[in-house]
Simulated assay, not measured.
Amino acid sequence: MKNLLKSVVFASGLLLASNAVNAQQKIGHINSQEVMASTTEFKNASEQLQKLKAEKDKQLGDMFAEYQKKQTELNDKARNRSEANKETIDAEANKIVTEMREMEGRLQQNQEAAEEELMKKQQELFQPIQTKVINAINAVAKEKGYSYILDLATGAVAYFAGGDDLSPDVKAKLGVSATAAPATTPAKK
Rank of each mutant, 00 (worst) to 15 (best):
M1I: 01
N3K: 12
N3F: 06
L4N: 07
L5Q: 03
K6A: 11
K6S: 07
S7A: 14
S7P: 00
V8A: 11
A11F: 11
L15Y: 14
L15S: 14
N19M: 12
N22W: 11
H29I: 05
I30L: 13
I30E: 08
S32L: 02
Q33N: 14
V35T: 08
S38C: 02
S38L: 05
F42T: 02
F42V: 01
K43E: 07
K43W: 06
A45S: 10
A45D: 02
S46T: 11
E47L: 13
Q48C: 04
Q48R: 13
L49W: 02
Q50W: 02
K51L: 14
K53Y: 00
E55R: 11
E55P: 01
E55I: 04
D57R: 03
D57Q: 12
G61W: 06
G61F: 03
D62M: 11
D62E: 15
F64M: 12
F64D: 12
E66P: 02
K69P: 01
K69V: 03
K70M: 15
K70N: 12
L74S: 13
L74K: 08
N75D: 15
D76Y: 08
D76H: 10
A78C: 01
A78R: 13
A78F: 13
E83T: 09
A84E: 07
K86Y: 05
T88Y: 04
T88Q: 14
T88C: 00
D90C: 03
A91D: 05
A93E: 09
A93M: 11
K95L: 06
I96F: 05
V97C: 00
V97E: 15
T98I: 08
T98Y: 06
R101W: 00
M103Y: 04
E104S: 08
G105H: 04
G105P: 02
G105W: 03
N110S: 10
N110T: 05
E112F: 10
A113T: 06
A114H: 02
E117P: 02
L118P: 00
M119G: 03
K121T: 03
Q122K: 03
Q123S: 04
Q123L: 04
F126D: 08
F126Q: 05
I129R: 12
I129M: 14
T131P: 00
K132M: 14
K132A: 14
V133T: 09
I134W: 00
A139E: 13
V140D: 06
V140S: 10
A141W: 01
K142D: 12
G145T: 05
Y146V: 00
Y146W: 01
T154S: 15
G155F: 06
V157L: 11
Y159F: 15
A161I: 01
G163V: 10
G163T: 05
D164I: 15
P168C: 08
P168L: 09
D169P: 00
V170R: 01
V170T: 10
K171N: 12
K173M: 12
L174D: 07
L174P: 04
V176F: 12
S177D: 15
S177R: 06
A178E: 14
A178Q: 14
T179F: 09
A180C: 07
A180P: 06
A181Q: 10
P182I: 08
T185G: 04
A187L: 12
K188D: 07
K189R: 08
K189H: 06
K189P: 15
